[in-house]
Simulated assay, not measured.
Amino acid sequence: MSFGQNIQFLRKMHKGMTQEELAEKMGVSRQTVSKWELDATYPEMDKVVELCKLFSCSMDKLVREDISMINEAYSNIRVKEVESFSFIL
């Protein structure tokens, strides 16, 4: 899988995010995201770092590997803190 296919895969796994939504989060145009996904252009390094943070993946996996085939499951699961509570056994 190419870099662009990895971005497309992760975007769709991230609550079905659209190109427009990703573009808004990254501060670029929808056309720019489309070009990334088509491997027509590549983002600047700071944007790659932002993509890794957004999708919770390493730069190496995003750029060099087939993310859809990695043993790690990518999903919409995120860690959230909740108020403490008590229970009785």
Rank of each mutant, 00 (worst) to 15 (best):
S2R: 13
F3H: 01
F3N: 03
F3Y: 12
G4K: 03
Q5W: 03
Q5F: 04
N6G: 03
Q8A: 06
Q8R: 12
Q8N: 05
F9G: 02
L10I: 07
L10S: 03
L10E: 09
L10R: 00
R11I: 01
K12N: 13
K12E: 08
K12D: 03
K15I: 01
K15H: 11
M17L: 02
T18V: 10
T18W: 07
Q19I: 07
Q19T: 07
E20Y: 11
E20T: 14
E21Q: 12
E21P: 09
L22P: 08
A23Q: 00
E24N: 13
K25M: 13
M26H: 09
G27V: 10
G27D: 11
V28N: 06
S29C: 08
R30H: 13
R30L: 04
V33M: 12
S34N: 13
W36T: 01
E37G: 14
E37I: 12
L38S: 15
L38A: 15
L38H: 09
D39E: 13
D39C: 14
A40P: 04
Y42D: 13
Y42F: 15
P43K: 14
P43S: 15
D46K: 14
V48K: 08
V49I: 13
L51P: 11
L51E: 04
K53W: 04
F55W: 12
S56F: 14
C57E: 05
C57I: 15
C57R: 03
S58P: 11
D60H: 11
D60K: 10
K61C: 07
K61M: 11
